[in-house]
Design a protein around this nucleic acid. Structure first.
Length: 259
DNA sequence: ATGGTCGGTCTCCGA
């Protein structure tokens, strides 16, 4: 079972690059972030023709998440619980209904800049709400994965130039501590486990030649519940997609779990 | 050296 995450930065602009990657990487399940589309405009038939079930949670212009799955999906839930006034489409979850069901939570965590300000407050509040959901899921003892664009740089080795990020919402102690709290509850960060060294990035800014200078950061993560961590066979980052035609600023991250 | 580039509701905003 291969499960992946890809912040595509606009489904309309990324249809070709996403299709090429799907064909090559052939994940069983992929969660997408920043589809930047309402549900009605998402090209679901295109992906259904490729053998995927499609569930979206979109909004106009910004944000938006989706799940594509070759296996049936059940118990689909849209939106992160805990704040009925939150209208940003950043969370979708579903149970992938295979021989060993796995709940897949796809997330687009708020960026949080500028700091200080309401956007940073929203980020930290959102992470606190996510921690509540993670605690609920851990209590059920079901197998689950929370993956997506976390917009958090966990450690200094996760940035080419950590000194450039010391006042940024992606790297401030409050953001990193909130991520660490979820790990400490019992989640395993899969890519770090398999690729423990420095220089492993998932995002290179479009600006200032970040890709050409390999000025990257690692902010897309795959967090495994104890039941799925026991099944982790491999994890990786498809860095080459960043150098392709009309790339996203993020690249896909993936895990392979024992059947 | 205070720049630079994407995508979308497109001459502004979010990243």
């Amino acid at each position: 079972m291969k499960i992946a995450s890809f912040n595509i930065n606009g489904i309309k602009a990324r249809l070709e690059a996403l299709t090429a990657w799907l064909t090559e990487a052939a994940p069983d399940v992929v969660v997408l972030q920043e589809i930047k589309s309402v549900d009605e405009n998402f090209p679901r038939e295109h992906f259904e023709a490729m053998g995927y079930r499609v569930e979206t949670h979109g909004q106009k212009a910004f944000n938006g998440v989706a799940i594509l799955s070759k296996l049936p999906l059940a118990d689909i839930r849209r939106g992160l619980p805990g704040d009925d006034s939150d209208e940003q489409a950043r969370w979708i979850e579903a149970v992938v209904d295979g021989p060993r069901p796995i709940r897949v939570c796809g997330l687009y965590l708020p960026n949080g800049n500028p700091v200080p300000g309401p956007k940073y407050d929203y980020k930290l509040a959102w992470m606190a709400r996510m921690e509540v959901r993670v605690r609920e899921l851990l209590a059920t003892e079901e197998a689950f994965v929370c993956l997506g664009d976390y917009n958090v740089i966990p450690q200094a080795i996760d940035a080419a130039k950590p000194e450039n990020w010391t006042t940024d919402a992606l790297y401030l102690p409050q953001s990193r501590d909130a991520l660490r709290r979820m790990e400490n509850l019992g989640l395993t960060e899969a890519v770090r486990t398999r690729l423990p060294g420095p220089g492993v990035y998932t995002f290179w800014d479009f600006q200032a030649g970040a890709w050409e200078r390999n000025n990257g950061i690692r902010i897309d993560h795959v967090m495994l519940s104890p039941q799925t961590a026991d099944r982790l066979e491999d994890a990786g980052i498809d860095k080459a997609t960043r150098g392709g035609d009309k790339p996203s600023d993020h690249v896909p991250v993936w895990v392979r779990l024992a059947a």
